[in-house]
Design a protein around this nucleic acid. Structure first.
Lengths: 110, 110
DNA sequence: AAACAACATCGTAATATTGCGATATATAAA
DNA sequence: TTTATATATCGCAATATTACGATGTTGTTT
């Protein structure tokens, strides 16, 4: 099928999964790293930096915008994309909530 | 296409993306949470808990095994899946390396 | 206004993922 | 040894993702 059965999971599970999913592509990781490093970016910079077509980069930027981790502001002919600090911290907190848990291994696996 | 151009990204970017990707499905989040909560689990528990077929659960377990975040040990007729503490900590560290960065927003976006 | 520049969106082809029934495998129980 | 139980794997259909050329949109420059 290829259709995730979202309705059988909790909102939290769906939300967390969609955050992970949005970060689950090397181009989107590269874009994030570039934005963090450059403090901002425009799409054409990325087209030059990465080896992907402009349309493709734009799609990936939209995926990142959809989870709110970046935001774009029109800057003349270009668009300036930045990290959304608020969302960034929220995502960080959600990941921490999962990964900061105590994960003692049961005796059966040791 | 549908084919990610892995060769144009760094190993680190591909690795990190594949970690995120493996966690980017609500069933796999639910499975992880169940394992953490129960300290262990067998596949049939999950088939009862979640509303997915046994074959589907098995596939998701394999996806989680592939990134090493869980490991399975044969326990009689069943398989006992547990968190792999070592890998768990490594993944946690990789996520922290990304998210602990300072993300000052450029003036153009504020 | 016309030409250009930077993105976004559309349409489409190739590939990947999700989900499940059927079947295979491996261990336990009778 | 037959039967049952637990899980893995195969094969397939439906849907999603990735990538890109073409085109649309918006703002800039001349």
């Amino acid at each position: 099928m290829g259709l995730t059965k979202s309705e059988i999971f909790t909102d939290d599970q769906n939300k967390l999964a969609s955050l992970f999913k949005a970060l689950g592509h090397p181009a989107r990781i590269a874009i994030l790293q570039h934005i963090i490093h450059q403090k901002a970016c425009i799409c054409n910079d990325l087209v030059d930096e990465l080896g992907l077509a402009q349309a493709t980069i734009s799609q990936h930027l939209t995926a990142l915008k959809n989870i709110g981790i970046i935001q774009g502001t029109i800057a003349g002919k270009s668009v300036c994309y930045c990290i959304n600090e608020q969302t960034w911290k929220e995502i960080q907190a959600e990941f921490n909530a999962l990964f900061s848990q105590d994960v003692k291994v049961n005796t059966c696996c040791s």
